[in-house]
Each structure stands twice: as C-alpha cells, then as structure tokens.
Design a protein around this nucleic acid. Sequence first.
DNA 1: CAACAGATGCAACAAAGTTGCAAAGATAAT
DNA 2: ATTATCTTTGCAACTTTGTTGCATCTGTTG
Lengths: 134, 134
Amino acid sequence: MDTKDLLHKHNLVRTSCRESIIGVMLQSGVAVSEEEIKNKVEGNYDRTTFYRTFKTLISSGIVHKIVVDNQVVKYALTETDNVDVQHIHFYCNECGQVNCIEGEPVPAVVLPEGYKPVQAELLVKGLCKNCSHG
Amino acid sequence: MDTKDLLHKHNLVRTSCRESIIGVMLQSGVAVSEEEIKNKVEGNYDRTTFYRTFKTLISSGIVHKIVVDNQVVKYALTETDNVDVQHIHFYCNECGQVNCIEGEPVPAVVLPEGYKPVQAELLVKGLCKNCSHG
DNA sequence: CAACAGATGCAACAAAGTTGCAAAGATAAT
DNA sequence: ATTATCTTTGCAACTTTGTTGCATCTGTTG
C-alpha cells in the first residue's frame, strides 16, 4: 500500500503536502512531532497547512494523534488492518520517542455502574528498547 | 484533612491562592480546568500565579494533571491514601466532565521484550453517569 | 515584630493552534 | 488538452496556552 493508494482509498485529493507527510511517517516507523515532520519534509509548508493536513488525515483514519503531555504531541500512521482495535502507546522518559505497540490491545476496563465506555487511551511511560539496557 | 493541614504536611507556605484553588477542588468533586477554577475562586489571581501554583501543587503530589486533549487540561486532587496507585480517568464525550475512578486500578500491561514500564495513564472516553441514561 | 524566604503581579515574550480570504493546484468532463 | 469546479495552500492576523525576569508583597520563623 503506497501513499497514492492510501489517499485515494480515503477519498482524499492527492497533494504534495499530504504525500510528503505520509512519506515521512512511513519511513520513520515511530510517532513524529510537527517539528520532526517539518525538518524531514522536502519543501516548506506553512504551519497552517500542517495543522489542516493533520486534521484531514486524522478524520480519515489514516493518522492518529498521541498527546503525551499538552506540550508533547505526536502523530503516527494507523495500521490499516486494525483500525478499530485500540493499541498501547509507549513514551520513553529518556529519549522522548513514542511507539505504537501493535499487537497488544488495551486491556478491558472495569468501571463503576453507569459509565458507558466507548474508547480507551493507554499511555505507558518508561524506558524504551534502546534506552533500557544502559 | 483540611486545606491548611494539607499544605503544611507538604511543606508548602499557606497562601490564599493555594487555599482557594484547593478549596474549589474539594468542593467540586470532579476534575477542574483553569477556567473553571478562575470562575469559582474568590479574588483575581494572575494567570502566571495559577500556572505556578499548579506546578507547585503537582510536584508536591497534592494535585495531578489530566491531559484529555492538548486543548483540554484538567486538575484534580490526589487522594492522599493511594498516592502511587495509578487510577483510571474518565472523560465524558457529552458534557466534557472528567472523573477520577478511585478504586479501579489501571490493569497490568503486557509489553514486548525490552520495554521497561514505569507509569501508565489510562483515559477512558464515553458517557458518564449523568449523560448515559438519556 | 524584624528578617528572610518564598509567593504574587506585571510586562513581555514564546509556542501552539485557528480563521478568513485570495491564489494556486487537483480532478473530472468536455 | 483545456476549461470549469472544487479543494488545498499560503499569508496575515488573531486567540489561547504557557513561560521568564524582576520588583513588590506576604508568610513564616526566631
């Protein structure tokens, strides 16, 4: 599945900004911040365009947003095959990298009477693979 | 445990701003935003003072911060008896209210080899008690 | 109640995000 | 291929959120 098909499948116009951003995410493998994208993307896109593009990609389900802290926001591609399965996010306290833990679903949650859960976001903080053996 | 003792126990100077903020939180029962606090607090405190006060209260462990989205930040009192037990936060998609689900711990998480978890944040979104039966 | 440490208010700034509008680009039909 | 249409992009201005330095004021201890 390449960038072009991905956009077309979600009925989105294929523009250079969208293709570039998705391209950076595909190459990166981990979640990326706005700044990281800006640095890796070829060409200078306006901040406004970035924000609007993120919104578009998110509401199409191509990308999801990970809010670690209100000052640390990252974006990652949503694996196409398990769109509605929630996955765990891991934040490394050492290097700041954010990983989507594919395959491990968010454990079922027990809530008191009356609460109707719809969606759950689990962010685990600690040391990632690279930073833990040191 | 009243506000005065709470501050004294954590070696914090007892000021009107801190007492007011804690007072609002005690009365509210749910997590509150900066704006909600500003509206309920008597007296006009500077925004700077609020931010600094939150930082102080958080690093003392009196209060914790709940980041729902990067534009939705709330604060809640930390129950003194279970400081290090992580609890679940519930965000209501309907009314926007955030509740600390005391008593239900965050379920243990299974992670791939190499990850060293330290802390976990679980935010469940859905309908709260008030909004679910309608 | 004096002296010191710490908290507050103000001003200025930095970062993050949004909105309206005109120009540029993509798509589809001729 | 070229136009007509719709969408996206860039720019400018603005709002919201959060921070920093410094002078002033308040709480606490002796």
